[in-house]
Amino acid sequence: MVALSDKKTVGRSKIHPLKFLLIISCASIMMLFAGLTSAYIVRRAGGNWLEFRLPNLFFINTVVILMSSVALQAAYHYFKIGKEKLYKGLLFSAFILGLLFIILQYQGWLDMHAIGVELTGNPAGSFVYVISGVHVAHILAGLAALTVALVQAFSLKYTVTPRRKLRFELTLIYWHFVGFLWLYLLTFFVIQS
């Protein structure tokens, strides 16, 4: 990337431009889900709505994704203070937990299918499938970022440069964000039913 933005801008900005850029991208992703969830509300108000219990796995999974967030935060901490082993181990655990989240979400969909809530049936079910599906797509993007972080962690010599720190922080922000997003979605579904 052309490193124009790596340069000190006029010394005023407290937050790195790329970090800022990521944060507003998250705001825009948030709007995507705001659109989907408000569509849910509008459609639900229209009646002919199937009520059903969310799969238990969705709740367990919330713990999984939050643990993954915590692991990554800790990895970042140890990355900064020079505990290489802990940093790599925790980074790896964050990745595995993220992967586990996706697998369990899929299992959750199967559970919905098992109680007769189909993707193509009443929109009440379709909404849950589609919204959680779009969310998983965002988790996948996060896993891609974590993969890059892992490859770098294990292939590059361990040093703490501003560039690597920044890259780590960007990954961290996004990963926290998609974790939080799931918390929001789950809360939304629970409040609505």
Partner: peptide, 14 residues
């Protein structure tokens, strides 16, 4: 644009 285009995208997804 940042606040409204994602909502259009959500409409397109559905």
């Amino acid at each position: 644009g940042l606040l409204s285009f994602p909502v259009l995208a959500s409409g397109f997804f559905l």
